[in-house]
Design a protein around this nucleic acid. Sequence first.
DNA 1: CCGCATCCGAATGGATACTG
DNA 2: CAGTATCCATTCGGATGCGG
Lengths: 130, 130
Amino acid sequence: MSTGDAAVALSTPVTVEEHETCPATGVLRRVGEKWGVLVLSLLDARPYGFNELDRAIQGLSRRVLTRTLRTLERDGLISRTVHPGRPPRVEYALTDLGRSFREPLLMLGRWAVDHETEIRAARARFDGGV
Amino acid sequence: MSTGDAAVALSTPVTVEEHETCPATGVLRRVGEKWGVLVLSLLDARPYGFNELDRAIQGLSRRVLTRTLRTLERDGLISRTVHPGRPPRVEYALTDLGRSFREPLLMLGRWAVDHETEIRAARARFDGGV
DNA sequence: CCGCATCCGAATGGATACTG
DNA sequence: CAGTATCCATTCGGATGCGG
């Protein structure tokens, strides 16, 4: 269950330091960001322009979309290509690294769908008090 | 790449509503929480008491540990069993659902470790400006 | 031993207006 | 078209003290 975490060494206490330098922790937190995976899933189909993404995801502000794209770009999961012209066009696309991320993400999604009922039931039980 | 998201239907715009009711979104965000997966990985080895977990994870405050445990319990990933006595003992352990979550999480961890170098390189490139 | 209550600072998410 | 600049709301993470 350690996901390659420093916590593999379960015998010894885990420090904040170890937890934060662990490569898996960063990935897990990236996955937890609200719109990142959704953007990746759109780009998995084909490249998109900025406003195109903005329109595709109803309710996401440009401010947040920009930050999301920058983060994904910084991690090397997507590429940003500027095509000069009138009007200018910037194209976002998955990189090889981004594509390689697809599989583990799909596994997680599959698990979520497969166990959706159980999770809902657990929550209802918990919230119901009992 | 959709991870079972409502975004599977890529042809149509994704609304905030669809995104938030998607079962995968909740799982992804749970994974992104700072300490949840670490706690799961500890409990994967054996059951723990509350203070035992507190000691095992150096630097995590009780306040946050409590919230983390409640969240995991609410989703049915861990169980909380009270053993009366002096002193009282509460035991946290993985449920079957929690154990089933292990595999997809390991995949993600494996990916993180396998691509750690690429990610670091991409970040250095991005931060360096170029 | 196991927590909850309180209070706080930081990070995240969001609405809007304006610019090259 | 593709953003940036501002400002605000919410959530998350954390420190600490008290109580069953």
